[in-house]
Design a protein around this nucleic acid. Structure first.
Lengths: 227, 227
DNA sequence: CGGCTGCTGCCGGAAACTGACAGCGGGCGG
DNA sequence: CCGCCCGCTGTCAGTTTCCGGCAGCAGCCG
């Protein structure tokens, strides 16, 4: 077993035992000498693990959480970020602040340019079951930077066919909407889901990177209200 | 610099460069020989990092996400879990499934007993600003396994003073509610936030572990509807 | 005091990591 | 076809790190 694996094991072992465990016992469980155990503990503490030792008692892992290296796919990071965004808006004050801290931590290790792209293909309101497929289609298009063909009826009852470049999906004042650059109008427009007749991927790439589009949209719109 | 630090650096370096980077360049940036670079890449791949190499091009980190070791406090894990719960209920189908996968991953590394405690002190609906403090108080009591003194008016308009052991906080059919064991009634009861007059921590421990209480409550209630 | 435990310094042997060299296979431009 | 670049593997010494054992100090408790 490699040293790094053993360090992970140590953390997990400490987690299992809620009460203080003596170094001797830990060493035996990991199959190393006490001396090495002490070194491992020191290493973990150096990495920020909240392990406390007291003479006469043993070691305890303070109820903090040391996340071992994990793989998250792009979609999984999306899910985490989206969830945290939600908490930061809907939780109680303390929890909201916590969520923002976590977001900052995560975004700090995300690839520089992706931060916007991954995080902004978001939705954050209660969704109707009927619109779930719609959201999936749009999210996919955002990810692929692909144009969408849209049939839409505006609030005056006029129907139209449009080609749009989707930017974000959101929930605003009781309506689910999609923000997108509308080729027909040559400007950003917001489309209410309940007015969308049909939406179809075109297979055509949008000429701008999503990240750029997002930045432009942010400049044009009042983000505070929407998100 | 230790080897493990260097491996982390490698991942971050690959993240910075979006385009393929040659092994030679990476080796130079990390200050090691090419041979060592190859070994490091192999190690990372062995740990599941999505690094791809192609002859004539270089290495790319597939847009997957390799989370370096991070410290999360108990509250921070709460925020993540809560957010994921939300996504698993409100996101589109694919995203919901993804969120559940992440939840499973995270719970797999959480301390065995805590899984319930941390994850169940949850809230999952839109919350009124006025109830934010209430939620914070209750969450704190759940965490500390502390009894709460409650003044409550039931739906028939009768007021009462109760001592309860809070179990979970949730959102159900438009109402924010707290599930708790009621000492007065000797049974589980659900309290609508808008009917709660006041709530005060008593400083007294509840005689049962929260985990046990949660399990009992689950046996009694229809969880599907509530959560 | 003695016993238990955490914690540190030191040392020699074992294990790993590292760099250099050689060689294979595949793509690409001449 | 060749030569070149690049990813990838094997081998092999030299170096570094890791590990176990030993000794010793400090704090706690009966």
């Amino acid at each position: 077993m490699s040293r790094s694996e053993r360090l992970l094991d140590l953390v997990q072992t400490l987690r299992r035992h809620r009460r203080p465990v003596s170094g001797r016992a830990l060493a035996a469980e990991l199959g190393v000498s006490i001396r090495t155990l002490y070194r491992d503990i020191a290493t973990l503490q150096g990495q920020g693990a909240p392990i406390e030792g007291e003479a006469g008692l043993g070691y305890v892992l303070r109820p903090g959480f040391f996340l071992p290296p994990l793989m998250f796919s792009e979609d999984e990071v999306d899910a985490v970020i989206l969830g945290l965004r939600f908490v930061s808006r809907r939780g109680d004050e303390q929890l909201a602040k916590t969520a923002e801290n976590v977001l900052a931590k995560i975004e700090a290790v995300l690839p520089a340019g992706t931060e916007g792209a991954a995080a902004s293909a978001l939705l954050s309101g209660p969704f109707d079951k009927s619109t779930a497929g719609l959201v999936a289609t749009i999210r996919k298009a955002i990810r692929a930077e692909e144009k969408l063909a849209l049939s839409y009826t505006d609030k005056k009852g006029r129907s139209s066919q449009r080609v749009v470049w989707p930017v974000v999906v959101g929930y605003f004042q009781g309506y689910e909407i999609m923000a997108a650059w509308c080729e027909t109008r040559g400007d950003f427009r917001h489309f209410r889901f309940d007015r969308i007749g049909s939406v179809k991927p075109t297979g055509l790439r949008m000429p701008k990177r999503h990240r750029v589009l997002l930045a432009e949209w942010r400049l044009n719109e009042d983000l505070d209200e929407l998100l």
